[in-house]
Simulated assay, not measured.
Amino acid sequence: MKTKRIVITGGPGTGKTTLINELEKKGHSCLHEVSREVIKKAQKEGIEQLFLTNPILFSERLLEGRLQQFNEAESYNGALLFYDRGLPDVTAYMDYFGTTYSEIFTKSCMDNQYDTVFLLPPWKKIYKQDNERYENFEEAKKIHTALLKGYENYGYDVQLVPTGSVEERIAFILDNLK
């Protein structure tokens, strides 16, 4: 049985991690966001904001981590594997910031395709900033647009998840798997 790779993505503060954690509690296999690990590792190396200091190195580390996660699906026996963000998030963010990047980024996104992509919209009611999330809500809305465009550029039929309770959002995702 081939494991379906399902991405849950969205701008900062849209509830991705909350949904991933709840899906995991319900027994689904989930792979967690790697960017916070990259940020914390850079901070231990003395770089407070790696993305702002060296956006390409930050993006290379994200790409590496997400490629590793993508390949982990080969070792799963379950029918579904949920990802907190996918490879196209890397290029979408670089596009948003106007960062020039090499073909390896786009090639990685084209060569490693997910089965289904769910995009969470910006939602003011739940949005919070923290030490690793330095974008404001207006920026989060623009990032949402960049993510939608980014995934569509790689040929994905992106499914927009409506706002609502965690249970309602999970039900929407599970009912709309392709």
Results as ranks from 00 to 15, higher is better:
residue 71 N to P: 01
residue 86 G to K: 02
residue 99 T to Q: 06
residue 88 P to M: 08
residue 59 S to R: 02
residue 68 Q to S: 08
residue 92 A to I: 02
residue 69 Q to C: 00
residue 94 M to W: 04
residue 95 D to I: 13
residue 94 M to N: 13
residue 62 L to H: 02
residue 72 E to Y: 13
residue 64 E to D: 05
residue 75 S to L: 10
residue 96 Y to W: 14
residue 95 D to L: 10
residue 89 D to L: 07
residue 93 Y to I: 12
residue 74 E to V: 14
residue 85 R to T: 01
residue 99 T to I: 13
residue 90 V to N: 01
residue 92 A to C: 11
residue 80 L to W: 13
residue 74 E to H: 15
residue 73 A to L: 05
residue 90 V to S: 08
residue 60 E to R: 06
residue 97 F to P: 12
residue 66 R to P: 04
residue 66 R to F: 02
residue 97 F to M: 14
residue 95 D to E: 11
residue 94 M to K: 11
residue 74 E to D: 13
residue 70 F to G: 00
residue 94 M to L: 12
residue 93 Y to K: 05
residue 61 R to V: 07
residue 82 F to G: 02
residue 93 Y to W: 12
residue 84 D to F: 09
residue 65 G to Q: 05
residue 79 A to S: 15
residue 71 N to A: 11
residue 80 L to P: 04
residue 82 F to M: 12
residue 86 G to P: 07
residue 66 R to G: 00
residue 87 L to G: 05
residue 86 G to C: 05
residue 99 T to L: 12
residue 60 E to F: 07
residue 85 R to C: 02
residue 60 E to H: 00
residue 67 L to P: 13
residue 61 R to G: 05
residue 73 A to W: 02
residue 75 S to P: 12
residue 69 Q to E: 03
residue 98 G to M: 10
residue 95 D to R: 13
residue 66 R to H: 14
residue 70 F to C: 00
residue 76 Y to Q: 11
residue 97 F to C: 08
residue 99 T to D: 10
residue 87 L to W: 08
residue 81 L to N: 09
residue 96 Y to E: 15
residue 59 S to I: 13
residue 75 S to Q: 11
residue 95 D to Q: 15
residue 81 L to D: 05
residue 74 E to I: 14
residue 59 S to W: 05
residue 67 L to G: 01
residue 70 F to A: 02
residue 71 N to R: 12
residue 68 Q to A: 14
residue 89 D to A: 06
residue 86 G to M: 06
residue 98 G to K: 10
residue 96 Y to C: 09
residue 94 M to V: 14
residue 99 T to P: 11
residue 82 F to H: 01
residue 92 A to M: 11
residue 92 A to K: 03
residue 73 A to T: 01
residue 76 Y to V: 09
residue 78 G to I: 10
residue 65 G to V: 01
residue 81 L to R: 00
residue 98 G to S: 14
residue 83 Y to D: 04
residue 89 D to Q: 10
residue 85 R to A: 04
residue 67 L to K: 03
residue 65 G to P: 00
residue 68 Q to E: 08
residue 97 F to S: 09
residue 59 S to F: 04
residue 97 F to V: 15
residue 96 Y to R: 09
residue 59 S to K: 09
residue 66 R to K: 07
residue 93 Y to D: 01
residue 98 G to T: 11
residue 90 V to F: 07
residue 64 E to H: 03
residue 74 E to W: 12
residue 59 S to E: 05
residue 80 L to V: 08
residue 66 R to S: 05
residue 70 F to T: 00
residue 76 Y to A: 10
residue 69 Q to T: 03
residue 64 E to N: 09
residue 74 E to G: 11
residue 99 T to G: 03
residue 73 A to M: 01
residue 70 F to D: 00
residue 66 R to I: 02
residue 81 L to H: 01
residue 61 R to P: 04
residue 88 P to E: 07
residue 89 D to P: 07
residue 93 Y to N: 06
residue 65 G to L: 09
residue 93 Y to S: 10
residue 66 R to L: 14
residue 89 D to T: 15
residue 72 E to W: 11
residue 96 Y to T: 15
residue 87 L to S: 11
residue 70 F to R: 02
residue 73 A to Y: 00
residue 98 G to N: 03
